Simulated scan of single mutants.
Amino acid sequence: MGENAMVEEEALMLQGQADIWKYMFHFADSMALKSAVELRIPDIIHRHDGPITLTQITTSLPDATSPDPTYLARIMSLLVRRNIFSAHHPSDGGDTLYGLTHSSRWLLSDSAVNLAPMLLLENHPTLLAPWHYLSHCVREGGEAFKKTHGGDIWALASESPHFNKLFNDGMACTARIVMEAIILAYKEGFESIGSLVDVGGGTGGTVSKIVKAYPHIKCINFDLPHVVATAPEHDGVTHVGGDMFHSIPNADAVFMKWILHDWSDEDCIKILKNCKKAISKEKGKVIIVEFVLKPEGKGLFDDTAFVFDLVMIAHTSGKERTELEWKNLLKEAGFPRYQIINIPSFLSIIEAYPA
């Protein structure tokens, strides 16, 4: 090996070491971000209508009995490096001013679209614990969540009102974000149908957006009885409790956002076959909103899709799928035709037809 090759190899090994250190402590980013949300730091800065000092943040912390500004300074330093917050150092030597960035604006609690509830859900101890069982799943199969908690995530939600609310709030906040993109990008898809059932629609936030934008559509929000029991009333929406593995209410179209990724191929085929029974063979369709894995993808959210595939191992029995996997799944369930519609979102629309 020549001298130049040796220098290059040493540089690559050093970079490799740096990468391992970075990934070893990636959880620190999540914990710092979670603490900022719990402390309502984005909201505090937003209320001041501009960048503020650490002292101003500390004195505005909710329920703070004896706040420690040195801890906060260290947390903010990391979050500034991650571009979650901005930091301006006055030339006169005054206190550093911390401001919002395009990232932290997604964490404002009073914003119509914000990711704070999803961040708190995914970083809750209940959902973090199964991640320690990934290697167990490789060795012996099974589901990480069941290994950790003795039952699946749906059972826990039905038994724990606190976790059920945490889960529903997380799902609702992502629904609002995705639906803004869908409402704008899928206009022709909605205009052609008269009735729609949202399968696994949670508390109805998603379908309420659809009926508000397209009031001619008769909408049904369909989910497990304990979920719809806590659902608020929405104009033009009928809540129906049931089990998608048994039957699905009839409609021109079935809408499923972030549902099939929670389930195995076998379970997805059962759900899709029930979808097929619920729609007409001639004009019916199933509107699936999910990730489409792109192994060589370089898009904004392609990396996130592969992270979510591991989220599925940790929390469900499901998986994220490539286009070929979606094609094979749909074909086996009785949907020989499909098209993928890209929208400005982290998810895509997969339109499936029974004929």
Rank of each mutant, 00 (worst) to 15 (best):
C275Q: 07
K276P: 04
K276L: 09
K276N: 10
K277H: 06
K277F: 09
K277E: 13
K277R: 15
K277Q: 13
K277N: 15
A278D: 06
A278E: 04
I279A: 10
I279T: 07
I279Y: 04
S280N: 07
S280I: 01
K281Y: 00
K281M: 09
E282P: 00
E282T: 11
E282D: 15
K283I: 02
K283Y: 07
G284W: 12
K285G: 00
K285N: 06
K285D: 01
K285L: 06
K285P: 04
V286I: 11
V286D: 03
I287Y: 03
I287S: 02
I288G: 01
I288L: 15
I288D: 02
V289K: 08
V289G: 02
V289E: 00
E290Y: 06
E290H: 04
E290W: 09
F291M: 01
F291S: 10
F291R: 05
V292I: 13
V292Y: 03
V292K: 03
V292M: 06
V292F: 00
L293Q: 13
L293I: 06
L293T: 07
L293E: 14
L293N: 05
K294C: 01
K294E: 14
K294W: 01
E296L: 09
E296S: 12
E296Y: 10
G297A: 11
G297D: 08
G297N: 13
K298A: 00
K298E: 03
L300C: 10
L300S: 13
L300M: 14
L300V: 14
F301N: 13
D302S: 11
D302F: 04
D303M: 09
D303V: 13
D303W: 06
D303A: 14
T304W: 13
A305T: 00
F306P: 01
V307K: 06
V307C: 08
V307I: 12
F308P: 00
F308Y: 14
F308D: 12
D309I: 05
D309K: 09
D309Q: 09
L310R: 12
L310K: 01
L310W: 06
L310P: 00
V311Q: 05
M312E: 09
M312I: 03
M312L: 03
I313K: 05
I313W: 04
A314C: 10
A314K: 07
H315R: 00
H315E: 12
S317Y: 02
S317H: 07
G318Y: 11
G318R: 05
K319H: 04
K319C: 03
R321P: 02
R321F: 09
T322N: 05
T322K: 02
T322M: 06
T322A: 10
E323V: 00
E323M: 07
E323D: 09
E323P: 07
E325A: 03
E325M: 09
E325W: 08
W326T: 06
W326H: 14
W326G: 04
K327S: 15
K327C: 11
N328I: 11
N328D: 13
L329E: 05
L329A: 04
L329H: 08
